[in-house]
Design a protein around this nucleic acid. Sequence first.
DNA 1: CTCCCTCGGTTCGATTATCCAACCAACGAG
DNA 2: CTCGTTGGTTGGATAATCGAACCGAGGGAG
Lengths: 174, 174
Amino acid sequence: MCKPWVMAADIDFLPRGACSIAASLELVGERWSLLVIREVAWGNHRFSDIVRGTGAPRDRLAARLSALVAAGVLEKRPYSDSPPRSGYHLTAAGRDLLPVLQALLQWGDRWARDEPAVRLSHAPGGTAEHPIDAEWVCRTCGRPVMESRVSRELTPAGRALAGLPITEEHAHEH
Amino acid sequence: MCKPWVMAADIDFLPRGACSIAASLELVGERWSLLVIREVAWGNHRFSDIVRGTGAPRDRLAARLSALVAAGVLEKRPYSDSPPRSGYHLTAAGRDLLPVLQALLQWGDRWARDEPAVRLSHAPGGTAEHPIDAEWVCRTCGRPVMESRVSRELTPAGRALAGLPITEEHAHEH
DNA sequence: CTCCCTCGGTTCGATTATCCAACCAACGAG
DNA sequence: CTCGTTGGTTGGATAATCGAACCGAGGGAG
């Protein structure tokens, strides 16, 4: 029995950059980026709030913020006309990063410290409030992803990125 | 109505380092680290395999590998006696990072490129193989986490990290 | 009007990390 | 003995990061 998530695939090595993990890290993998997203998600929208919440140097923070705006993860929204000031808010793409933060939070709670320092709770649909202990579940079959064998396959788009030939053989193989 | 994951909490600013997200990034947030985990998870255990798979410079890779071993995320396991060679494998902590990779993969598929380059499939419990489209679901109530309001609260351990007083008031408040 | 404060950044110089090519040691094959 | 493979190190150039100081537009108090 093979470990979950470790399985032979139709390829040995992904071409560099073909993997969406690498593509994501290209956009949000630099230092402070994810902590900035966390601060904004937690309601700290102003420059000085984010400085205080992350502890990042101001110049790095300014650089990250404009990079994240350029990447479409954050947007600048004015909150005062005089003096003209604006804060940062999550776009749809930014909100979609929250699972990444949730995953990092859960991992850190478990492996990076003795006791969690922050507890997250929710009360979905009127149920009683309770702490969150989340797992990845496949929307298609409803089963936890991490407990099953996973296989990976290079798509035609991936082959194109890789500069590999897109053959009938590959288009049909499984 | 407040956006999910954006909600008032009992604290305005988390002390730096109190948050497990920051603690996680401290261990695996540096460049190449998560790509190394990806390679190892995908079955590339040897130094030269990981060089090829990630494209990282050899010296950076050596540094990351020993850091990840020191952090308890990877372990070195010999695969040949003569010549004495060893490869890198995921520990339990390392396998627990896979949700982070899954989250980054899904985000990248959606926001960082036109078409996914790699398709992940699984066939849990003898069902037919199908692509993975996963979401975070609370183990307690079975509901998707991202669709409900989430509140955060500093635990006593978090207060201690923050240097804040641990009062009865705070221990009981909600 | 003047002085001082806040906010959202920039600028500067020093430190640190990263990159890349070359090198090295251990071993096996031929 | 030489060659190729593997798993790294080393050295020097380049780029990112840091921390503190600075700046400019605008209040508000006096």
